[in-house]
C-alpha cells in the first residue's frame, strides 16, 4: 500500500519534534561546544579544535573500554536473543497461565536499575549471597566478583541476562501471537517438522519484533551504566569498566568537560553507526532472495 503524500502531516509530527528537540538538540550543542574547547572555569575557555578528539581516540583506556563494550554487547545479543525466543516459544498461548507468565516475566523490567545492582550484590556476595556462598561452600568453586575479573564478568553477564532477556521474550511472544492459526495448519498439512515450522513460519513472521528487540538490546547494552556501577563499580581493576562508566569517570568525576564532550560524541557516533548497520542488515535478511 502506498502512503498518502501530504506535507501537512508535519503538523501532526510537530509536537514530537519540538519536545524531543528541546531535550536533544540543545544538550547536544552543549556537548559539541565542550568538545572543541578547553574550559578552565566559568567564562574561561579557549578553542582547541579537534585536539580532544585526537586525544580521546588515542586513549589506550578508551580502546580497552570499547573492546570490553563490544564483547559485552556481543555476548548479550548472542545469549539473550535465542534465550528470549525459546522462552516465548515455551509460553502458553491461552488460559490463566498467560497473565501469570507475563507478570512474572515483566517483573525484572520494572525494577529500578540501581536496585537491580543491589539485588545482584546481595545475591552473589561470597559471604552472604545465595549464589556466591553456594558456589564457594556447596560446589567448592572459589567465586568472588569483587576480586576476580572473570567472576565479575560472569556476575555482570548473569545480571544482564536476568534483567533483559524478559524484554526479548515479551516482544518475541507478541510476534508469535500475531501469527494466524492457518499458518500452523498449513505447515502440518505440508508435513513440516517443528524445526521447519520455526525456520520458515515463526522466525520470518517475528522478524519485525525481533528487529526491534535486537536494536533495543544492542543500544541499551552498549549504553549500560547504572547496574555495573552499583554491582562492581567497574572493577576489579578496570575489568568491568564499560564505555559509560569510563565516560562518567572523565566527564563528571574528573570534570574534564572537553575530553568528556569529545568522548561522548565519539560514543554516540559508534552507537549510531552500528544501529544503522544492524537495521539495514536485518531489513535485508527479510527481503533478500533465497532460491
Amino acid at each position: 500500500m502506498e502512503k498518502w503524500p501530504n506535507n501537512r502531516a508535519w503538523l501532526l509530527v510537530l509536537p514530537v519534534f519540538v519536545i524531543v528537540a528541546f531535550s536533544a538538540i540543545i544538550p547536544l550543542m552543549t556537548v559539541i561546544n565542550y568538545s572543541v574547547q578547553d574550559i578552565f572555569g566559568p567564562n574561561q575557555a579557549i578553542f582547541v579544535g579537534f585536539e580532544w578528539f585526537r586525544e580521546m581516540l588515542a586513549d589506550k583506556r578508551l580502546h580497552d573500554a570499547l573492546w570490553r563494550q563490544f564483547l559485552f554487547s556481543g555476548l548479550v545479543l548472542v545469549i539473550e536473543m535465542p534465550l528470549g525466543i525459546l522462552i516465548a516459544l515455551a509460553m502458553p498461548k491461552k488460559g490463566w497461565g498467560v497473565s501469570l507468565c507475563l507478570v512474572t516475566i515483566a517483573l525484572p523490567l520494572l525494577i529500578p536499575w540501581n536496585t537491580i545492582g543491589t539485588i545482584w550484590i546481595i545475591f552473589t556476595r561470597p559471604d552472604i549471597g545465595l549464589f556466591g556462598a553456594g558456589m564457594n561452600s556447596l560446589l567448592g568453586i572459589p567465586f568472588d566478583h569483587t576480586a576476580r575479573p572473570l567472576d565479575a564478568w560472569i556476575t555482570v553477564m548473569l545480571m544482564e541476562v536476568w534483567h533483559w532477556t524478559p524484554l526479548v521474550a515479551l516482544l518475541a511472544y507478541a510476534g508469535l501471537r500475531a501469527i494466524p492459526e492457518a499458518y500452523y495448519q498449513a505447515a502440518r498439512i505440508d508435513g513440516a517438522s517443528a524445526w521447519s515450522t520455526f525456520l520458515y513460519i515463526q522466525l520470518p513472521k517475528m522478524r519485525g519484533v525481533l528487529t526491534i528487540a535486537f536494536l533495543l538490546r544492542f543500544m541499551d547494552s552498549f549504553l549500560i551504566y547504572a547496574e555495573p556501577f552499583v554491582l562492581t563499580g567497574g572493577g576489579p581493576g578496570n575489568s568491568t569498566t564499560f564505555l559509560s562508566l569510563y565516560l562518567v569517570k572523565i566527564a563528571l568525576l574528573q570534570f574534564d568537560l572537553g575530553p568528556g564532550g569529545a568522548f561522548s560524541l565519539i560514543y554516540f557516533v559508534i552507537v549510531l553507526l552500528f544501529s544503522f548497520i544492524f537495521y539495514q542488515a536485518l531489513e535485508r535478511i527479510g527481503k533478500g532472495d533465497k532460491v
Binding site: S244, A251, F268, V271, L272
Partner: peptide
C-alpha cells in the same frame, strides 16, 4: 535519541 549515552547528557 535513544542511542545517546544518558551518562553524558
Amino acid at each position: 535519541n535513544r542511542m545517546a549515552p544518558a551518562a553524558v547528557f
